[in-house]
Amino acid sequence: MKLTLHIWRQKGPQEPGRFVKYELDKVNEHMSFLEMLDVLNQELIARGEEPVAFDHDCREGICGACSMVINGIAHGPQRATTTCQLHMRHFKDGDVIYIEPWRAKAFPIVKDLIVDRSAFDRIIAAGGFISVRTGSAPEANSIPVPKDVAELAMDAAECIGCGACVAACPNGAAMLFVAAKVSHLNLLPQGQPERFIRVKAMVEAMEREQFGSCSNHRECEAACPKGISVSFIARMNRDYRKALWKTVEHQGGKAEGISQFRG
């Protein structure tokens, strides 16, 4: 099939970007979206032009690297699918496709379609962990976890941190990401000791990165390649509300994140 691509090209973080139009012939319907871009890049290299820079790694839908907004939809039109798992059979001959990077103040553009998602790392560093003694592995059955709780925690833990929720949210909010990360630990017994300081620390870290607020548009859930439910956002809101009377603030400590709540 034949496609007309309008791709966001931007040389660097401070450079002005613009859309560049590319005509691409002989696109095979069995190609993934990224393979289609590989073919384009081969042509660009052959012509002596700069190839389009985009993030990718595993190409099997589990790493969360591939990030692009395809015709206004993060990860493209196929629901619960990452860009690398999106196949060209979902497009028609003669289609015009706009490809843009994630757009959010918290995700500055590095080059072309690549954005810096280290804001997510800083949110995780603030509370996306449990404090346990390292050493020999604990006996697997020493802490019983009900089956339905384990399943629900796994639903949240499916989050691959791709940032599609932020890209899709009209407010540029990271609520679904943070809610998934808070929930998968807060649901499990191992996450209980730090449950309320975790939610507060991670929400505050999210705010420092200047993500937007939640208007309950549910665009994040629709864009999420793992189909993570907005019910986790409700769960995080609930824990945040409870944290109001379940946390004690210590004086003096300037460290950010969970450590700030420790004596």
């Binding site: 015709n71 206004g72 918290a106 407010n171 909010a173 200047q210 937007g212 665009e219 629709a222």
Partner: peptide, 17 residues
Amino acid sequence: NWRSRPKKYAVSAYQEA
């Protein structure tokens, strides 16, 4: 919210909002 997305998308397609 407006500050969080200083640059708008060229194409916007709402799925649920």
